[in-house]
């Protein structure tokens, strides 16, 4: 596995000198690429290095850095290596290159990203609505979208929920256990 990975890293670095590698254990390869290089990079991976399968396109909203991140998860069935390709997109102007001519299934993922995160894919041919119908707010998976506020505005609440207790706090109080610091901020 180590030799295969090293060989692949060498090949990728030779073809794309600007791609940044990050070392991981196991069968995981990790590269960060500029967003304009993504279509060429991915088609090279597919055609030359045997990453024939696109498993998923994951997306992260880095609101503190004012950026979106897309992660293309690739899988090589021959070498049993998975490849993570990271790229960052400006949050103010979220436009990304379309890759559904490389993998057909990317179309579906991109429709989801377009709808849930608001990243535009100018070349993509797809119907407008995928999951949300009649949505006129900011895309709901952006972190500045306040779900509870939206719910209060759109739906109604039945009275009786006000004395609801926080599960984590109640359990820790009952068993005398400390809530770790990182968990505290998720408590209600």
């Amino acid at each position: 596995m180590k030799e295969i990975k090293d060989k692949m890293i060498a090949q990728i670095n030779a073809a794309f000198p600007e791609a940044v590698n990050k070392a991981y254990d196991g069968n995981r390869l990790d590269f960060t690429v500029h967003k304009d290089a993504i279509p060429g990079f991915l088609s090279h991976m597919k055609d030359q290095l045997g990453f024939r399968h696109l498993s998923h396109i994951a997306y992260v909203d880095w609101i503190e850095e004012n950026e979106f991140e897309l992660v293309y998860l690739l899988w090589s069935p021959t070498d049993k290596v998975k490849l993570f390709v990271h790229t960052r997109i400006d949050r103010e102007n979220p436009v990304m290159h379309n890759i559904d001519m490389i993998w057909r299934q990317a179309n579906t993922y991109q429709r989801e990203i377009k709808e849930m995160l608001g990243i535009d894919f100018p070349d993509m041919v797809a119907p407008d609505e995928f999951i949300l119908e009649d949505w006129d707010d900011i895309p709901p998976f952006r972190r500045d979208f306040d779900t509870l506020e939206y719910v209060n505005r759109t739906f109604w609440h039945r009275p009786g929920r006000e004395d609801a207790q926080d599960v984590r706090e109640t359990i820790s109080k009952r068993s005398g256990e400390e809530i770790p610091d990182f968990a505290k901020k998720y408590s209600r």
Binding site: V151, F155, W156
Partner: peptide, 19 residues
């Protein structure tokens, strides 16, 4: 269906069916 249940603060599920 009564008060939204565990999805009471979800943006795409309704809370009160009888509305």
């Amino acid at each position: 269906t009564i008060n939204g249940g565990m999805y009471y603060d979800s943006y795409n599920t309704i809370n009160l069916l009888d509305r």
